[in-house]
């Protein structure tokens, strides 16, 4: 039930005393992933890279849905904004890769603030509709602002990442080097996410999700923290978009299609909303595996659809808790 705003059990995720265990699991996963290029072929590495690009917007959605309790469909709008702004900056001014990432993240975060002003006053489905609207409008702008975005053609020949080093640096071109870049980014993103949600701001967000009226009555500036969650979720998505565009080197308005937004939703809900491990699991399971198995898109979407239905009713906490239920069972503190 951790996905709901009225959730009563979610808090045990953060009160879990087995942090050491989680850290160990995380380290094992990172080492396994770091060793993956030794055994995996280019196509498998590509699938892993794609799943790691989805990990960032998924972490952003996890922040706003899992921690602030609001279901936002704007993630792919911010992902696209990050991708476009990063690509345009790089193409126009030849900026270095790290700066493009910053530009992508900041652009998304900055756009999120004025959008959040009307949207965050809304509750429940009105908020959902409003954020869905952002994606629709972003797509219309991307299609029609032809002088900048080149409309439906999209942008191509986006520069590949250049890593500046003492010897002048190098351009990332091989799949393996992209893979390591994605892995480093993902690890940093996960660490940033963990730091964020265990900070005071993270606790306030959880308090607001659990009981907004109560949080407000004890003086929590609820609007303020919802805005922070919304803007930061956009930053995560924007950085993801930036990496995406420098990997694929092309971008078009199709990035705003509901297909991608649905994939992000499947990752977060299917993996385990309100957990980091769940989102990581979801990214690999739902993107890498289906990508690597080369499942036909229509069959994959049917499977996604059935999975969504089964998950919400059978295991509304996502698949991660199923995997680690035994471990969790002893450490859970149910708050009635």
């Amino acid at each position: 039930m951790a996905m709901t705003g009225v959730n009563v059990h979610g808090s045990y995720i953060y009160a879990n005393p087995r942090h050491g265990l989680r850290a160990a699991g995380f380290a094992v996963l990172v080492i396994a992933l770091a060793a993956a290029p030794l055994v995996a072929g280019d196509y498998q590495l590509h699938a892993l890279i794609v799943s790691m690009t989805f990990l960032l917007p998924a972490l952003g959605l996890n922040l706003i849905l899992g921690y602030a309790g609001m279901l936002s469909f704007a993630q792919m709008a911010f992902f696209g904004i990050g991708a476009y702004s990063s690509a345009l900056t790089a193409m126009r001014w030849g900026t270095p890769f790290w700066l493009n990432l910053v530009v992508g993240g900041l652009a998304a975060g900055i756009v999120a603030v004025p959008l959040g002003i009307p949207a965050l006053r809304l509750r429940r489905y009105s908020f959902v509709m409003c954020t869905l609207g952002f994606a629709v409008i972003a797509q219309t702008i991307a299609k029609n602002w032809i002088s900048v975005t080149r409309g439906d053609l999209g942008l191509s020949q986006v520069p590949r990442p250049r890593i500046a080093l003492w010897n002048g640096g190098f351009e990332i071109t091989s799949i393996t080097s992209y893979y390591y870049l994605a892995l480093v980014l993902s690890v940093l993103a996960v660490l940033a996410f963990l730091t964020l949600v265990s900070s005071a701001a993270g606790r306030y967000m959880i308090a607001i999700r659990e009981d907004e009226t109560l949080a407000a009555s004890v003086g929590t500036p609820t609007w303020h923290y919802r805005m922070i969650a919304f803007a930061l979720s956009a930053v995560f998505a924007g950085v993801g978009g930036s990496f995406y565009v420098h990997y694929f080197t092309v971008i078009s308005p199709t990035v705003f299609d509901p297909f991608y937004a649905n994939t992000v939703l499947v990752i977060v809900l299917g993996g385990g909303v309100g957990t980091v491990g769940g989102v990581v699991l979801g990214s690999f399971l739902f993107v890498a595996v289906s990508e690597a198995l080369r499942i036909a898109p229509d069959l994959r979407m049917i499977a996604y659809g059935l999975l969504l239905i089964v998950i919400v009713f059978a295991c509304p906490e996502g698949l991660l808790p199923l995997f680690i239920r035994k471990i969790r069972f002893g450490g859970g503190t149910h708050v009635p």
């Binding site: 996905m3 709901t4 705003g5 849905l65 279901l71 489905y125 959902v128 649905n262 939703l265 809900l269 979407m301 049917i302 996604y304 659809g305 059935l306 999975l307 969504l308 239905i309 998950i311 919400v312 009713f313 509304p316």
Partner: peptide, 13 residues
């Protein structure tokens, strides 16, 4: 949210 996710699933199918 349960309704949104479930009907999204129905729509995909």
């Amino acid at each position: 949210q349960i309704g949104i996710v479930a009907t999204l699933g129905v729509s995909l199918v």
